[in-house]
Design a protein around this nucleic acid. Structure first.
Lengths: 220, 220
DNA sequence: CCTATTTTTTAGCCACACCTAAAAATGACA
DNA sequence: TGTCATTTTTAGGTGTGGCTAAAAAATAGG
């Protein structure tokens, strides 16, 4: 009993929702996993128990699940592969940043350590993917010193610069593109009203106290 | 009921063995498919019937199976993807030609028409893969005007130039590499005795009547 | 604090794709 | 032509990973 595409998908979801809930000791609800994976709760319930038997997750019945260190390590390797492939698709093949998620979702399951090493070198060891998300290194460490907060939490009147966009479906990415905004773009009061409010929580910005402090930037 | 990795593997095997047996109207034996796919005969028997229901293969019980035109088209698209990915792995990522088969075997199942188009363009529309095998175009046509014959069928005393190597396991590729031979290398009586005879049928050469007619070439 | 709603798990079912063992068809050869 | 070995298919079973329906636990509200 070992790796499979479905188990990897569950590991990744467990990691993603765990992070969103505040770190590696957070418990993730079965229903949340099911919604994220587009699957029914009983399927998740079963899979989580398999992951537990494999030593990759911890399961407290009727409470939730979370990754073990080895499960976390596997999940981070998947995140690494996903983000490297997205970088390849955008930087080398010329895909738009809103077109690569689904393809990377398939590519991340390709099993070859040397392929990942060579891809990483071929891309000049990128630190972030096309959406500004940090790429874990080969040890699974994420070294990201940027100060980022959701646009939705940026104080009213404050300015910010787009550092990352957490949007798997591509709707927010698409919205930004239509407004000629990308990584590095400056967000002021005008942009905040232009962009649909539902997307603000997925747009991570580096904040400034006031508009005068903002640096020179350009649209992508 | 549609595409799946396993069904695609069976389609590809059916295509490969059909070609080896002499073309699109050749019947392929269940046992041959099973051996090629590293699976038992009953598994193939079942899968072939599924492929028949899907309209991708024709099955004459106790006789064999062969692809329908639409099955053939699907198989050729898989061959195209496989060979494009092999080209990418060798030309762009720097893999050795004996290291790429297994990885391409995974990559060929990635489902994205646009990805294949962009990859093809990125590689400058290659006509052959790193093993000299022709890459079908987007319509599934193989336009390969080279005259190639297995080294095993080259008349004794005749010379030839390596045009392609049909070796999924990599043993023959490895042998050639150890003797500093590659695509374009000239094969004479000396090389024929050096290379293990079992591999000769997988080495395709362009023959010449005599040694004087051979062109200038170099090892890879 | 006790009941009602929500969440989660268990139970039981289905499809896919493999397997072994047994039956059926084919083909080879005396 | 009849028998026997080989090939193929069918029958029945396993593991994976989904599903629905029902049971069980947790949570929320009066």
């Amino acid at each position: 009993m070992a790796k499979s595409t479905n188990r990897e998908d569950h590991l990744k979801a467990l990691y993603a929702l765990g992070e969103r809930k505040g770190g590696s000791d957070a418990w993730v609800a079965t229903n949340d996993l099911a919604a994220h994976l587009q699957v029914k709760a009983p399927s998740v319930s079963g899979m989580v128990q398999v992951l537990q038997e494999l030593g990759w997750a911890e399961h407290r019945p009727y409470h939730g699940a979370r990754l073990t260190p080895s499960g976390r390590s596997l999940a981070l390797s998947l995140v690494r592969k996903h983000r490297l492939w997205e970088t390849f698709l955008v930087q080398r093949l010329g895909f738009g940043w809103d077109e690569v998620h689904d393809i990377a979702e398939q590519l991340e399951h390709i099993d070859s350590v040397e392929l990942v090493q060579r891809l990483d070198a071929y891309l000049d060891h990128p630190e972030v993917d096309p959406h500004g998300e940090p790429i874990p290194n080969v040890h699974g460490d994420i070294l990201d010193k940027r100060v980022l907060m959701p646009l939705s939490e940026l104080p009213a009147g404050a300015w910010g610069q787009i550092g990352a966009v957490q949007d798997d479906q591509g709707q927010v990415l698409d919205q930004l593109q239509r407004n000629n905004l990308g990584l590095g773009s400056v967000i002021g009061p005008k942009e905040r009203t232009t962009l649909p409010a539902e997307g603000h929580q997925y747009i991570l910005v580096t904040p400034w106290e006031n508009a005068d402090a903002r640096p020179q930037t350009s649209a992508p």
